[in-house]
Amino acid sequence: MNKKLYIYGAISVLLAVAPFFLNAYWVDVLNMIGIYAILALSLNLIVGHAGLFNLGHAAFYAVGAYTAAILNTKFGIPILWLLPASALAAGLFALIIARPIIHLRGDYLCIATIGAGEIVRIALINDIFGITGGPNGIFGIARPVVFDFVIRRPHEFYYFIWLFVAVTIFFFRRLENSRFGRALNYLREDEVAAEGSGINTTHYKLGCFVLGAAWAGMAGDIFAAKMTIIAPESFNFWESVVMFAIVILGGSGSIPGVLLGSFLFVGLPEMFRDFADARMMIFGLAMIIMMIFRTQGILPPTPRTYPVEITEKARVHG
């Protein structure tokens, strides 16, 4: 247990000093890893913990990003203040689209979420309500400002993004070890038994969708602030696939697994840029081999343990 703590501590220190040793390009790669980590952690609630196949997570990411972009460019509201607005919009959107499809099982739900994701992307391209800017998207999004300090350069963004990752880990770890987190696991393990144990399964399915979407919406806000320009192509089906693969490959339901997955999935292709086309082939092959030999992911979750003190055989009477 202690060994783990040292490893996590060492990684945290390494991440904290990394920008001092890396050039802007690699810091920016780490920034993208951070954004994908937030997205994959949010998807992990839905896919990893509740076992609901969602291949349309990019839709919530997009709703968050566009909410922030539109409100910022049209009304000049600071982008950081829009974090709750992005979360709310994405969460609400998730509630609306998930409500009619939530009872679907496994592959059926998966197809429905792909459909929802595509609808969002195409709506954005078609300049829905005349506010999304069509295929060109929205540009001129303001930089985040913290007490008069403008976050602009990659290494400044680095600390902003990774602070958000840390906050996400902090909250999601607590969530995992709670009534809410357990309820999601029960419903993943056996929906009938969960309902039969007194768990409102529909409520929790919707709950994890809304919460996961809200978090992805905030990632969208951060992405918009970082890029200052967003377009529908940043939220296509492939993005949903990447998030999904990070969760499955890293370790469904495991925060360390999902983080590692983000590094491998976003970082490795950058490292092997020299191999040009071959890199994606090797990458694909690695994925196949992984899924054959380690179906539970690279770092699967360890079972929760509780402080159990058995004193005497306690017998309960009426």
Partner: peptide, 30 residues
Amino acid sequence: RLFQNLTALENVLAGRHARMKSGATGAMLR
């Protein structure tokens, strides 16, 4: 129909669920 990949204790905790109240926010803020 147990939750096979969870511990015995967590299986019983599932039964406690209906008698508990706290939600996601309560959990995150502890």
